[in-house]
Structure formats: C-alpha cells, structure tokens
Amino acid sequence: MLTVQRVSKTYDGRPLLQHISFTVGSGETVCLLGPSGSGKSTLLRIIGGLEAPEAGAVLWNGVDLTSIPPHARDFGLVFQDYALFPHLNVFENVAFGLRMRRNRWPASSASAFEAALRARVNQVLALVNLRGFETRKVTDLSGGEQQRVALARALAPSPRLLMFDEPLGALDRSLKEELLHELRTILHRTRIPAIYVTHDQEEAFAIADRVLILHEGHIVREGSPAEVWHDPRSPWVARFLGAGNVIEGTMNGRGQVETEFGLFPAQCRHHHAVGERVALLFRQENKRGYPLRLKMTVEDVLFRREGYELHLDKGWIVRHPEPAQPGQTISLIFYVECLGRV
C-alpha cells in the first residue's frame, strides 16, 4: 500500500503542495484530478522519486522511500508524450526494464534469461494488443500505438505501482476512449495499484476507483467519482466539475441566503454565521437538494449530443431535452444544494 504523508513542495517560492496525505490500496486506481498548475504532476514525480519533497514522506507498506532512488522504487511511470527510447525498437523498449532488473532473476544462464525475457515481453505486448509489433521502430508508430508501447514498457517488470502522467492528453477523443477502456481492463486484470494524473474529469471518472481533486496545494475533495459528482461540497469543486450553476449570496438571520435571484433556504451541512458569504448549487438532474421552480429567459440555444444547451439570463446554463426560442421565458425545476462557505 502506498502512503503519502504530509508532502509539501514549493515552486518558485510559492507553495505548490501543502501537507498532502492520501493512500493507495492494493488493486486500487486513484486519480489525481486538478487544473494545470495544481501540482499533480509534481506530486507524481515526488512519489516516483524523480523529485524530492521539502517535507513529508512517501511510504510503501510502511517503509519510508524518501532515500530510495527512483530506479530502486519499482514504480512504473507512463508519460503524456510516451518518452519511448528512440534508439530501440518496440521489443527492446519493452524489454528495457527487465534488462535493468537482470540481477533480480534467479541465477540462470544468459539464454534462459533471454527466453524468459522474450516470453514476458510477448505477454505484455499481447496485453496491450501490439502482438507483431516487436521489430517496429518506435518513431514509426502512431500516437496510440506509442502509448501502448509505453504502457507495455511500464508493465513488463511488474511494478508495485503504476503511475500515469496525463497519458492520453495527446490523443484524439475516440482513441482516448478506446485506450481508456483498455487501460481499465488491464488495471483490473493485473490488480496493480495505480495513480492516474489528469485534468480531464471524464477521463478521471472513467478510470478511477477514487478521485482526489487538487486545488492550490490541497486535496479539496476525495471520494468515488459518483460521490464527488453528486456532492462536490465546495463552490470551487462544483465549478471545476461543471456540476451546475453556482451562485453566491449572504446568510441572513433567518437561515436564508440572499442572492441576486432572491431569497433561498440555505439548508447547509454546517452552521454559517449571519453575513457570511455562501454558495448555492442549482442543478436539474441531481435530486439531493430541495426542488425549486424558476422562470427564466432563454438567450441562446445550442445543440448537444445529449439534447439542447440553453443559455439563460444571468449566465446560467442548463440541459434541456427540447429546443427553445431565444427570448422565450421558460419555467424549470432546479434542485438547490448548499456548497458551503465561498
């Protein structure tokens, strides 16, 4: 089990990561989700030993890894731009990690090692659907194929942990979905715990058992994709996930929030003092909050695959099964949740 304990790091004098703690259990896929610059890649590199934390520790099964160099950590890393070795063909790229760990194999003859190596490389190449690519040059492969080689290369030495740094960021949408599905299958089949870094919530929700949302050096929300989506718990997370329309207001003395749309019952998880700024989330599909009917004016209508996207006055955006005319007034039911302090 991987334990990250109160890891801190500054970048150019500004705190990038502040006391980050979390664990990754066996067979679990944890996704670090955050906007660019949130320090998620740095956190990954700290776990991999490529960078040193300024405070805190990374532990594996309770053993501190801080002084262990990356090559001895046994963590596989997959990069966004693949980082394949240009001087080696597909087979040798995948075999690289096995050759570097030659000493770990039982004292066997060179030929026995080569045979075992060949078997293992062919096995992982089959796993990533690249059988027959052994002698190809990596520079001649497509982006998707290159990323499969990179995955096979990381898988081959059977690492204790797999780390993915925006692995599908450079691929187009359909390829992304295809590879995401394959990756999910492979992770489930191999039961290797994994940390997956991305800024794309759809990717995160598709692959993760658990999502950690990083913002300004802190983990601001943690949970399964469904938990995080249904209960974002902070205005920043709600906005980042695009969960619905977030409006801000001020608590009054009667447990209500005064907003530019009027007065709304707060029904917050925590008690908020009078005069405190509070955010409310208005969305249609999630029935966690209390229902409310609002009349609004349509300003623009966009066609989407899942229906229509209506742009309403005050900048609200809602999904709607039918098209509407700009200028039309429509009546919609929203469910209102309290997101807590702004």
Binding site: G48, R73, L77, A83, F85, M163
Partner: peptide, 29 residues
C-alpha cells in the same frame, strides 16, 4: 535531450551509470 527519456529509464530500474550506458550514449551516438 528530452529529460523524460531519462526519467523513464530511471523508473524502469536504471541507475545513473546505466542511464548513461544504455540510454544517453546510444541516443547521442
């Protein structure tokens, strides 16, 4: 030289000496 190549080699179990021997020198031949 893309530093990620080196990082990839390190996470695959190559120490500094082997990074030079098996990656940097061959790539820079």
């Amino acid at each position: 030289l893309d530093p990620r190549l080196e990082q990839a080699a390190r996470t695959l179990g190559a120490d500094s000496r082997r990074v030079w021997l098996h990656l940097i020198l061959p790539v820079l031949r």
